[in-house]
Design a protein around this nucleic acid. Structure first.
Length: 846
RNA sequence: GCCCAAGUGGUGGAAUGGUAGACGCGUCGGAUUCAAAAUCCGAUUCCUUAACGGGAGUGUGGGUUCAAGUCCCACCUUGGGCACCA
């Protein structure tokens, strides 16, 4: 008997797969294709358990589909542009390019031992000029189609470092390096016209049947379609009327002021006045995130301008308010403090009137500190409504108000979207250069396609803040592609979301001289199964959906690929306990898992000190709770790591990595190996046991297949534990047991492919287990003749009866009422009602 | 602040509205062993009972239903996202 040696087995079978090129994907119209894709990683240089979990899930699907006769495309690449490379260059010197490519090499080296069924020949990184050159080509096509344009937008500005900051570089309203108070500053930037497709992107969500409902809901809310009323407030001084958009026109009677954004033209026109400037500076302080704006203290400035209420003719003041966004609606609102908490807080602060426009049906206390904001579907009682309403829901009132405004001609019902255009300009080096040139004579001129890729220069330094492209001595200078005169290259690069918005399409023809190759895109698209973290639920997935449409317009993707991901699965994180003690200075000290010993329910250090255990925390370098997959592979093998990340939690939820769990997984795999190696094929058994084992095998095939197909990997693994026990304990003949064990190997193959091959070979399986056709369960073998039904009395289980599976309801009822526990519970009383759910349950109502 | 999830034994978790706790870990007991490791067998929600039983129980409080972990309402806690982290 040999022992289970993962290291030996895994190296051997990986070599065998390589040699047979089993994972190389080639177009083959004679076979159905299947495209599995996991969200590609950022090359941090360190593979973590989250990656292992993500790729293992994809691998299970890919290997399963391979054995069901599909031509599988399962590629891998790297999302390689972005800030960390520049930060590394600043922190430790060196060049973002070398840092990135070194990291990619390291990650590939760390991924290979996992035995993933990847077609490595298709690998690319988004920072390869070959890739980003094609991206520039796409940009030019989008530009030509009018899908890209320039406008002003605000950025986080660090006034000390004189540089633009990413949101994550703003900490508590200050720049992370300089510590300066961050301001919002306007810059001219490039935008994708995603808002043109807002309605389509929303409508098409309905067709994404195999996407998680929560992701679709988040996207729908993000797109934020709303119907409201747009109308204008006439200015008392005769100036240009102020147009406002509101989703609650029914509360117009409760208006107490008109609010405009600090970026509204009227506010801008007032700049130069010392008081206005001071206020605007204050209002523009802080970062650009919606969170920062929403949670900032509400500030207002009375412009002194008065407008007329369109219905009552009453005069309302116009205030500049820091919480009004210029990007949404018209950048101006009317405030109804009685029914909006934000407006109420503002009015209380600046002593503006609060007017109730409706009350709850059973309560007419005027609003004081809390705004009354019922659901739009709730009936409320209106106070002197201008459309003559008495009791009506908000929804009804809104529609009636819009109709009235349109009939009387002072406003119109309009549909607006919350979705803003996608700003793609980044004032950074390590990204895809935007292929345009600024010419004094010709303006903004697209680079010629034959000059692509516009490559990033290598000779740059990161010893000062800001974009090195801006201060590059020669790269910036060029000839205008239109007139040939000296011109300046655009120094902004593209958002890295652009890179990840079409990589899935590029994988279908990664070396093509155009962004895609029609025949390949036609054959391989769509991605049949996309797998990644929920953190990408909105932005990445929305941008990719936009890109697929834009690429279709430009002829780079077929119409059928406008929704590029047929099915989406969002997996949870891998977490790990944090082991914490307190240092002498009272600050927390975090210990590595290896330093900590678990004794019962306590955790102690080697010196005996007790350690606080914080469970289920996101793995984080600073908390010392990161588990390195390489260490696990060294100690137990890749199959153990793969088995564990799949076994312990449902895939969509977080899984906590525990040393005990990893050991248990390894123990189980060793057991399977031992069972196979100790199997005596000549052993005799009973025909009944053979029959029973065969039934159990078919049941296992059915259950595991269902589990794999429905992403119930943990459930599939639970079945495999059960089936392993069944095989081990079966009294069937050696020959029957060998067949069952071979099926066990096949069923385990997607999860633990190396072990499966070893067992398969040991039991005389033909060829590679990986390529063996997936077993099919015989429906006839799954049905049992008898079923055991629990019998409840008033919903409480009092006994059970075993009956033939298609027994008549009346017969079942009779047997149930005769059951001992049921009779005891009924205590001689006649049942009021008996509910028989065939094959399920009997409930007696007493 | 806004949007979206999730909360079940000591523990990770299972459960088309139909026996709550499958399967794994841990713990306890037993077998094997000179002894141990490994392995194998069994028990394991809590309270109560000698036992048969009985009662309670899926974050909290309500509701719908013959039947609720599952559906509805409100709340609490934790996690994800909020447009320049990827």
């Amino acid at each position: 008997m040999s022992r289970y040696s993962a290291a030996e087995i895994e190296a051997r079978w990986q070599e065998a797969w390589d040699k047979a090129e089993v994972f190389k994907a080639e177009r083959d119209p004679s076979r159905p294709k299947y495209y599995v894709l996991e969200m590609f990683p950022y090359p941090s240089g360190k593979l973590h358990m989250g990656h292992v979990r993500n790729y293992t899930m994809g691998d299970v699907i890919a290997r399963y589909k391979l054995s069901t006769g599909h031509n599988v495309l399962h590629p891998m690449g790297f999302d390689a542009f972005g800030m960390p490379a520049e930060n590394a260059a600043m922190a430790i010197g060196g060049h973002p390019k070398t840092w990135t490519y070194d990291n990619i090499d390291q990650m590939v080296e760390q991924m290979k031992p996992l035995g993933l069924s990847l077609d490595w020949s298709r690998m690319f990184a988004t920072c390869d000029p070959e890739y980003y050159g094609q991206q520039q080509s796409l940009f030019l096509d989008f530009l030509q189609e009018g899908l890209v344009y320039r406008k002003n937008a605000v950025v986080n500005w660090d006034p000390v470092d004189m540089t633009v900051l990413a949101n994550e570089q703003v900490e508590g309203g200050r720049g992370w390096r300089s510590g300066a108070l961050v301001e919002r500053k306007e810059l001219t930037q490039w935008f994708f016209k995603i808002s043109d497709m807002a309605d389509e992107l929303l409508e098409a969500l309905d067709g994404l049947d195999n996407w998680p409902a929560k992701v679709k809901l988040m996207q729908a809310n993000w797109i934020g379609k709303s119907r409201g009323l747009q109308f204008a407030f006439e200015r008392v001084d005769g100036g240009e009327a102020i147009s406002v958009y509101t989703t609650r026109p029914d509360t117009l009677n409760g208006a107490s002021f008109v609010g405009i954004s600090p970026d509204h033209p009227i506010a801008k026109a007032m700049e130069g006045d010392a008081a206005v400037d001071a206020f605007l500076a204050e209002a523009r302080a802080g970062g650009t995130t919606e969170e920062a704006i929403e949670t900032a203290e509400k500030l207002g400035f009375d412009t002194g301008i008065k407008v007329k209420h369109p219905l009552t003719g009453e005069e309302l003041p116009v205030w500049i308010a820091n919480f009004i966004l210029m990007d949404y609606g018209t950048g101006a609102i009317f405030a109804c403090p009685a029914h909006d908490q934000r407006d109420l807080d503002f009015c209380r602060k600046y002593d503006l009137p609060v007017i109730d426009t409706f009350f709850a049906l059973d309560n007419d206390t005027p609003v004081s500190k809390e705004a009354f904001v019922p659901a739009k579907t709730e009936k409320v009682r209106w106070v002197d409504h201008f459309a003559g309403l008495d009791v009506a829901t908000g929804e009804e009132a809104i529609n009636i108000t819009i109709d009235k405004a349109e009939a009387e001609g002072w406003g119109e019902g309009v549909t607006k979207f919350r979705l803003r255009d996608w700003g793609l300009s980044r004032q950074r080096y390590w990204g895809c250069p935007i292929p345009v040139v600024h010419c004094d004579a010709c303006g903004v001129v697209p680079e010629k396609k034959e000059n692509l890729p516009v490559e990033l220069p290598d000779d740059v330094s990161f010893d000062q803040p800001g974009n090195p492209l801006d201060r590059h001595p020669t790269w910036r200078d060029c000839a205008c592609p239109a007139c040939g005169k000296p011109a300046k290259r655009e120094t902004d690069t593209m958002d890295t979301f652009v890179d990840s918005s079409w990589y899935f399409a590029r994988f279908t023809a990664p070396r093509a001289k155009t962004p895609t190759e029609a025949a390949d895109a036609e054959y391989w698209m769509n991605v049949d199964q996309y797998i990644g973290g929920v953190e990408h639920a909105i932005l990445h997935l929305l941008y990719a959906r936009f890109f697929a449409r834009a690429m279709n317009i430009c002829g780079h993707l077929p119409e059928s690929a406008k929704e590029p991901f047929d099915a989406l699965f969002t997996q949870g994180m891998v977490t790990h306990a944090i082991f914490k003690t307190e240092g002498a200075d009272g600050r927390p000290v975090y210990h590595y898992p290896e330093e900590v010993e678990l004794k019962g329910d306590k955790a102690v250090l080697s010196d005996g000190r007790e350690v606080e255990v914080i469970p289920s925390a996101k793995m984080s370098k600073s908390k010392n709770n990161v588990v390195n997959p390489l260490h696990i592979i060294e100690a137990f093998g890749a199959d153990t790591a793969r088995w564990f990340v799949l076994s312990d939690s449902p895939p969509e939820r977080d899984v906590e990595w525990t040393a005990a769990g990893a050991e248990a997984s390894h123990k189980h795999l060793s057991r399977v190996y031992r069972i196979a190696s100790e199997l005596d094929a000549d052993a005799k058994g009973s025909p009944e046991a053979d029959e029973q084992l065969l039934r159990e095998t078919h049941k296992a095939v059915h259950d595991v297949t269902m589990g794999v197909e429905s992403f119930g990997f943990n459930a599939a693994i639970a079945k495999l534990y059960g089936f392993t026990n069944t095989v081990a304990k079966s009294k069937a003949s050696g020959a029957a047991k060998r067949e069952a064990a071979k099926t066990l190997a096949q069923l385990m193959s997607p999860m633990t492919p190396h072990l499966a091959e070893a067992v398969w070979e040991m039991l005389g399986g033909e060829g590679l287990c990986t390529l063996a056709p997936w077993p099919v369960a015989d429906a006839a073998m799954l049905v049992e003749d008898n079923v055991t039904l629990p019998v409840q009395v008033n919903g409480k289980r009092r006994g059970e009866i075993t009956v033939p599976k298609d027994m008549d309801k009346a017969e079942v009822e009779k047997l149930a009422l005769a059951e001992e526990g049921v009779m005891r519970a009924l205590d001689g009383n006649a049942p009021k009602k008996v509910i028989v759910v065939p094959g399920r349950i009997v409930n007696v109502v007493a």
